[in-house]
Design a protein around this nucleic acid. Sequence first.
DNA 1: CCACCAACTAGACCATCGATCCGGTTTGCG
DNA 2: CGCAAACCGGATCGATGGTCTAGTTGGTGG
Lengths: 262, 262
Amino acid sequence: MDNVWSRDRKAPRQRLTLERIVAEALELLDEEGVGRLTMRRLAERLDTGSTTLYWHVKTKDDVLDLALDAVFREVRLDALEHENTGLDAHGGSAGLGGSAARGGSGGLGGTARSGERGGGVGLGSGVGVGSGGDWRGPVRGLMRGWRAALLRHPWSAALLDRPLMGPNALERTEFLYERLIAAGFTAPKAAAYSLSNYVMGSVIMQVTWQDSDEADTGDFLRERGGRYPALAEHGLDHEWDATFDEGLGYLLDGMEQSRAGR
Amino acid sequence: MDNVWSRDRKAPRQRLTLERIVAEALELLDEEGVGRLTMRRLAERLDTGSTTLYWHVKTKDDVLDLALDAVFREVRLDALEHENTGLDAHGGSAGLGGSAARGGSGGLGGTARSGERGGGVGLGSGVGVGSGGDWRGPVRGLMRGWRAALLRHPWSAALLDRPLMGPNALERTEFLYERLIAAGFTAPKAAAYSLSNYVMGSVIMQVTWQDSDEADTGDFLRERGGRYPALAEHGLDHEWDATFDEGLGYLLDGMEQSRAGR
DNA sequence: CCACCAACTAGACCATCGATCCGGTTTGCG
DNA sequence: CGCAAACCGGATCGATGGTCTAGTTGGTGG
């Protein structure tokens, strides 16, 4: 039965907001990935029509931009100030890897330092802590948190080919520049550039591999071990966290070398 | 007039091949970008119907995978063997930047070393050329060529979030591993990982900026200079080539430091 | 108390896309 | 000659991002 009398007198007004849209988009992305985010599905989850979304948002890209910036919001900047250099012995390959956030979440704001482990892998570590203070600790912490946040939302990797102009992304970048300047880099551009590019590339590569079933890919390469012997022998174990930390150590050491030699 | 008699007796059989498809896809991508590559448009350029493409290719992703691997084919490995360390003084911001290949081309196989310039930016360069030989020269050359090839086809940046399992990409990765092993890295994984991730991230970031009209983005940031002072002051000049080389120098120096200290 | 307007909503609709179905045609080869 | 694999294309399917039209709701100023 559906007539004027049986219906609610006032449809409970929805009060849709940008915040609700973005939060729901994040959940949808975490659960089903970027390929399944459509305006219709998003609207359905918000219990409205797709048209309504376009009242708050100009295009679908807006939604994606907002969602991506929301990921950066998870990177906490506080408590990074007194981060030590993080150079305890490097342990096994513990937690934190990809495929974490899938399934619900909704809980943003979780600290980004969940899986911190030692890094730097014991090379030239005790070097120049003279003039610049220990600038590497906070910078390393920022990069780890950056990476961890992106890995917690693997869909973000596919969105990194767009300008990161959201307030949260900019705030983190500003923090990075500040730290580098304080450490004594008069031209921090190259340092910030290489660090953030390294993180972006690392996340993309890891998500790519993990999405495409590492086992199969490994088999594929092993079968072709004749053609690519070095790659097949040394490139197939994926201790993602340790490898990332080691590479980050290379970068930081090279930067410190340049900073100190002045 | 169109009847049985006026028509060619034998329609000149098309002989569509994967190679032709990929070559045409590359041209289309160079001219119009990844967003405008559709199976229909590609088929039209090949003077056939979209259905026919699916005889040679399973999905559109196949086309993109093939096109991306074809970009790696442009990275020449010969002449990289005796590459010097490339440490002449670093000059201005010459050629090679993005938006190069647009408009025709079709000419694959062009050498990737078009815009080589000095790099490393004069830091700890003369260090450990003892045991490992000058491994940095060829590696640096490979990374530069890698980047240059991707920048010559800016659309490739948006495709880097997929497994690079094509023969050309694998061959270059194998070359990188070989070089690193020969240089004395017993576990070259982290070095190869960080180098290739750095290149990927750099290309993605540069293409992103150049696609979104650098001037506008600069204004956007300058307007917000109050909120992001360090970023606005140090992050807005884009000498892409020099910045890339400097960051690459950091990585190589850090790696050399680890290699030598053993 | 009412007029008005911004905020909000739904459904039909449009062009386009990747992909498939179906019904063919052409070629090489035995 | 006949057959099977290769090749071809129009029609079509389901889905998408986005717009158009035609409303409904709630708050505010008069």
